[in-house]
């Protein structure tokens, strides 16, 4: 368990003190994947570096597995760091060492086992991250995704309880990003490792995290289970992050289409439906059309995304009725509500 209690960090800059972190409280439960999302400069890196003592809070405390990291020094701090692995945006491998030697490096630092045992452990980890056959290669001979796999194997060498991921996929292309994220989830499941992820990409949060905190200017402005935050983002910044991930086109495009439809179908109603969890799999819309046969529907835009807790989707539709039977529309909307689909009628401007 990782606990931040009233943590603040102040740097003394040239123009007076700068508050990088302000009164952060958060708890990461064991075995979870916790995401911290924020724009660059929000303080994410400072925050994650407090977990392994690379940064110390000015006030407040950071406790990891019952040990107050922010108070540890020297040998005790180094000992604690052995149990916290970390992976980096730019991988930070030693170019002078082969893949195998890079993975052995943390074992040399912890002085665990003899040369043969270290080799064996490193070979196992290289297999775990899917790099067998590359043991003798140097980092310069690897692709970005392969380098990050070495980074992950290296971070796991001392059997840590916690893995810190500092923008680990930000330098990778989308396909490689997904492969590395799948690997992280796999490790989380298999080894029961707690993972703390910082990122500026909501995609990473949606794909692997259980819990998310949104960091803005050093303050956590919103946090909760990923699905909840995706469903009901409260703060403007959170909405921006969620939109970055859930809208397929840009928001402006949708608005143009909606405007056009409103114009050409003065009688219709434009509705935004939000589905989550198992609802996304049910034929709710076709059932609605069957029950209210006078309604016609056209789809404006829609999408569906997978998160760790289930699917989340949104659908913009336009409902029109024959014979101007407004009751049918109201009935259809009510039906959707009884199916616990969030409906939002987009009003035409009067």
């Amino acid at each position: 368990m990782i606990r931040f209690k009233d943590v603040s960090k102040t740097y003394t800059g040239k123009e007076g003190p700068v508050k990088a972190i302000k009164d952060v409280n958060l708890t990461v439960s064991d075995g979870k994947i916790y995401g911290i999302v924020g724009y660059s400069g929000a303080g994410k890196s400072t925050l994650i570096r407090m977990i392994n003592g690379l940064e110390t809070p000015t006030t407040g405390s950071v406790t990891v597995n019952g040990q107050e990291i922010s108070q540890l020094k020297g040998e005790a701090l180094r000992e604690a760091r052995l149990k916290i692995g970390m992976i980096f945006q730019h991988f930070d491998l030693l170019w002078s060492r082969t893949v195998l030697e890079n993975v052995e490096f943390p074992l040399e630092i912890s002085k665990k086992g003899n040369k043969e045992e270290r080799r064996k452990k490193a070979e196992e980890l290289i297999k775990l991250v899917g790099l067998q056959g590359k043991e003798k290669a140097y980092p310069s001979e690897l692709s970005g995704g392969q380098k990050q796999r070495v980074g992950i194997a290296r971070a796991l060498a001392n059997d840590p309880k916690i893995l810190l991921s500092d923008e680990a996929t930000s330098a990778l292309d989308p396909k490689t990003t997904d492969e590395v994220l799948d690997l992280l989830v796999d490790i989380n499941r298999r080894l029961g490792l707690t993972i703390v992820v910082i990122t500026h990409e909501m995609h990473v949060i949606r794909k692997i995290c259980d819990h998310v905190a949104v960091l803005d200017a050093g303050t956590i402005v919103e946090d909760g289970p990923v699905l909840d935050v995706f469903k009901h983002p409260q703060q403007a910044i959170t909405k921006r992050f969620v939109n970055q991930e859930t809208s397929t086109g840009s928001a402006d495009d949708t608005q143009v289409v909606v405007d056009q439809l409103l114009e050409s179908h003065p009688n219709g109603v434009i509705v935004k439906l939000t589905f989550h969890g198992d609802q996304a799999k049910l034929p709710i819309v076709s059932e609605m059309l069957r029950q209210f046969p006078d309604t016609n529907m056209s789809i404006i835009e829609g999408n569906i995304h997978q998160t760790q807790e289930g699917s989340i989707g949104s659908l913009y539709i336009q409902l029109t009725v024959e014979n101007d039977n407004q009751e049918q529309i109201q009935g259809a909307l009510d039906y959707l509500k009884t199916m616990r689909v969030e409906t939002e009628v987009i009003n035409r401007e009067q």
Binding site: N52, L54, L77, R78, E79, A80, R81, L82, I84, M86, F88, H90, D92, L93, L94, W95, S96, R97, F105, P106, E108, I109, S110, R154, N158, L164
Partner: peptide
């Protein structure tokens, strides 16, 4: 030297001496 590599070694719990002998000197050889 890339400062990130030194930070990575620190994050792994390396001592100053280990950083000198295993990172600074080999990496700048």
């Amino acid at each position: 030297l890339d400062h990130g590599v030194i930070e990575a070694a620190k994050a792994m719990g390396a001592t100053r001496w280990q950083i000198v002998t295993k990172v600074l000197i080999p990496e700048s050889s």
